[in-house]
Structures are given as C-alpha cells and as structure tokens.
Amino acid sequence: MRPFVYEQPTDISTAVAIASRFATDDDQPTRANAQFIAGGTNLADYMKLGVAEPNHLLDLNQLKEAALRQIQVTDGGIRFGALVRMGEAADHAEVNRRYPVIADSLRLAASGQIRNMASLAGNVLQRTRCEYFRETSWQCNKRVPGSGCAAMDGFNRQHAVLGVSDACIATYHGDFAQALIALDAVVHAEGGHGARKIPFAKLHRQPRDTPHVETDLAAEEIITAIEVPAIPWARRSLYLKIRDRESYAFALASAAVALDLDGETVREARIALGGVATVPWRAGAAEEALQGKKLDEASAGAAADAAFAGAHPRQHNAFKIELGKRTLVRALLETRDMKV
C-alpha cells in the first residue's frame, strides 16, 4: 500500500479548501491527488488494490455541520445529510412510510456491516466493480484513459447493456441511486465556487469516450445533502433486485418503481433500472409508454420493451435485456398490487 497523508478537516469549507489545493484543471475528480473518504467501503478497497492512488485522504467524518448527519422530513420532502449511513436511512420510519422504494434500495444493498459504515453520498458516488477495473493488470479506459477495455470482449456477464460506449461497458452497481433518480432527487454540493444544486439525473455521466469522467462534480466539491421532493403517491413504490443469491450481491437487474394510479390506470409512473446500465438509469420511454394506460402484464411488457429498445449486449450479458424486462414487468405489477 502506498503511503498517503491523512487529514480530518472539521468543517466543509476547510475540506473544500484543502482539496482545492491539490485539484488541477486537467485532472478528473476520480484521479485527483486528494480524495474524500467517509465510510471507506469503496475507496479503501480500491486503494489497497492500487486502483485509486491518492496522496491525500480527507476524512469527512469529523465535519462539524450537524445537518450532514441528519434526516430531515419537511413539507417539501425529505433531506438526507451526506454522512447519514445507509443503515440509518434504511431503518428510518418516515423513509419507509413515504418512500418504500428508497428504504428497499438501501436494505437490499451490500451487507449489514457495510450499510453501517457507508455514507449515503459515498454510496451514490461508488465506483464500478467491473472485474477488469478492479485489477490493475488489465486494460481499462476508466482506470487508465486510452489503455483499452478488456471487458468489451472478455467475461462481461455483469456488464451494462444501456448507456454503454465503445470505450466502456462497466455497470453502475448502486441501488440507492436508482430510487433517487426515479424520484427526481436533487444533490446539494459545496465547492470552490460555492454551493449549488444538481438534479440527480445530471450527477452521473455516461462513459462515452471519457469513461474516467464519472460525475459532474469538481475535484474539490463535496456532496452535503440529497433532497427528495414530496411525492405523496410515492408510498406506492418499491425496489426489486434480482441477483444470483439472496443477499450481498450486486443486481443482475433491478427496478425502482413508483406509481400514481387512478384505479388501474397509470397517471404517472417513475421507473429506474439498475444492474443494466453504466449510470443510474431513468427509463423515460417506459414511463411514457405507461402514462394513461391500464397497468397489466401486456402494458407492463410494452413499457419494458421500450425501456430496453436501445440496449447493446455483449457476449455474456445479452440475457440482461430479457431479465431486465421481466424485472421491470414484475416490479410494475407488484407495485400496482401494493396495499397503500
């Protein structure tokens, strides 16, 4: 393991200031000399593996701003402090009552131990677990820009079929982000240019020809909160995660669904898909396909077809298209049948 400097800034502006000192214009945040760490469940792992090589580690756990650790329920919705742990949010009564899809997405992620450590902001920013990214002896455009992609024609069963490019097919594995993008969440960030709000859907960037550029954040920017608007009908929502084993595995396919129903007719649908895309994936075409329709197996199937219309499979992951569709159909029908 490489030596590094470890610092514990005690307020957000200091953290931003320290990070700014190491940020250079041409370096992307994932490759910046200074990295933020909160739960450490992803970054520490990648530092041990030589995938991440920061010289400075800024531990955010001592930041004194209380709101960072709070879940605030307001008329406008719910606001998650960035340092709230996944486990806390998953167990929060109002989160469970108002947004079952959020609670499900957290509860079905990782393991109990990891959920107790991992922060919500860190979870959202987790990096791909692509096997070829994780191990430095392989070619990887995300890890070493321009070096090639070993996954493209390699063992790519876990890889994405949506939002892919010729440079990268690595899956975004997070679950929580699917709930957030479906519910039109907003990210609050503070950086060298002050505070700003970023629609969650704009936070992550598709790989295109720069897969190492993963988010809209600047190197010194810190997520301070995630805000989810009030959506009364989001009580009819769930997160369905399909995987090889019952727990502690990434989704092969998942669906975050919230439905506003008039009887069996869809007033509005919110759909996001996990395990199948390079970034958190809002399935707008599927939502539109359902609007004003009676929700049944046929209309759900048509929506699923629309969701995967632009899918690009590789050798080992073609099944994800069929699985992703079935996952969405099942999630839609189960959401329709929820007692709320």
Binding site: R129, E131, Y132, R134, E135, G154, F155, Q158, D244, R245, E246, S247, Y248, A249
Partner: peptide, 15 residues
C-alpha cells in the same frame, strides 16, 4: 477474472 469474494459467489446465510 473474478478473483475475489465479491464476484466468486458462495451461499450466504440468507440462501
């Protein structure tokens, strides 16, 4: 390729 317990799956208690 899958040289760790993240990708080399074995049953967990829930299974």
């Amino acid at each position: 390729v899958n040289r760790d317990l993240q990708d080399y799956l074995v049953p967990v208690n829930a299974d």
